[in-house]
Simulated assay, not measured.
Amino acid sequence: MAREQGRKLIAQNKKARHDYAIDDTYEAGLVLQGTEVKSLRQGRASLVDGFVDIDRGEAWLHGVHIPEYSQGTWTNHSARRKRKLLLNREEIDKIERRVAEKGLTVVPLSLYFLNGRAKVEIATARGKKTWDKRHTLAERQANREVEQAVGRRLKGMSD
């Protein structure tokens, strides 16, 4: 079988970008069981309730839902088990310091295959208040309206 090339997106956590102000992003590998990989290859996963915890110098991904593989037998995995993240020691230490000092949290943003290997993009993030969320939505709407007006102007249509 030919080896996969490029990036294949499995799941994205759109709610994280809405609920959190993202600071730094990191790419981490995942330690998975065989049935988890097969389930991910079918494009089934949910990152909505996921978070990262650093315990004794190791990063762990909690709350990510990878459903059981449909053709799996007694070897199937549990859907919401914690999974170890593969990061460099410097990255783990940096994340741990930032979370301890500034009161940040670490959330998964996306889950994908990169050249046949499962990867997760994680980010240190600060929770937004409700007014921050409204401000972001208003800003996005204003930018959209400006782009539409510019597009209409370029096409020669009146406002």
Rank of each mutant, 00 (worst) to 15 (best):
H135C: 02
F113H: 02
G50F: 09
E147M: 12
E101C: 04
K129W: 10
E147C: 05
G116M: 07
K128E: 07
A138C: 03
Q12Y: 11
T124W: 02
A142W: 05
L40R: 09
D19W: 11
R97T: 10
K82G: 01
G29A: 06
H62W: 12
V150R: 15
L109T: 07
V52N: 02
R126D: 02
A123M: 02
D24W: 12
H62N: 13
W74G: 05
Q148W: 10
S110W: 01
H18W: 12
R144C: 03
E36V: 05
L9I: 12
E36W: 06
R97L: 03
Y112M: 04
I122F: 06
E121K: 13
K133L: 11
A142N: 11
A2F: 09
R98D: 13
G34S: 12
T25R: 07
R3D: 13
N76G: 01
V150M: 14
E121P: 02
L40T: 03
T136V: 09
L9Y: 04
L111P: 09
V64E: 03
G103H: 09
K128M: 10
V106W: 04
N88P: 08
R56M: 12
W74R: 07
V37F: 06
R17W: 08
R152T: 06
V150I: 13
R117D: 08
D24C: 10
K128H: 08
Y20D: 07
A11E: 09
A118Q: 03
A142L: 13
E96Y: 04
W131Y: 14
R56N: 15
R117F: 05
G43N: 08
K133A: 01
Y26G: 03
E90A: 12
Q5F: 10
L87H: 10
R81P: 01
H65I: 04
A100Y: 11
D19Y: 14
D19G: 01
S78E: 15
K8I: 11
S78R: 12
K128G: 02
A59E: 08
Q141H: 10
A45K: 02
V107H: 06
T75F: 13
I10A: 02
R3V: 06
A28E: 09
A123H: 04
A21D: 15
F51R: 14
A100P: 03
K102Y: 13
K133D: 00
S70W: 03
K128Q: 10
A142D: 13
L86Q: 14
R144N: 00
A21H: 14
H135F: 06
R80C: 02
G6H: 08
F51T: 01
V48I: 12
I92W: 00
A45I: 06
F113G: 04
E90L: 08
S158L: 10
H77N: 11
D53I: 05
D159G: 08
T35C: 08
E121C: 03
E91K: 02
P108Y: 07
V150P: 00
W60P: 05
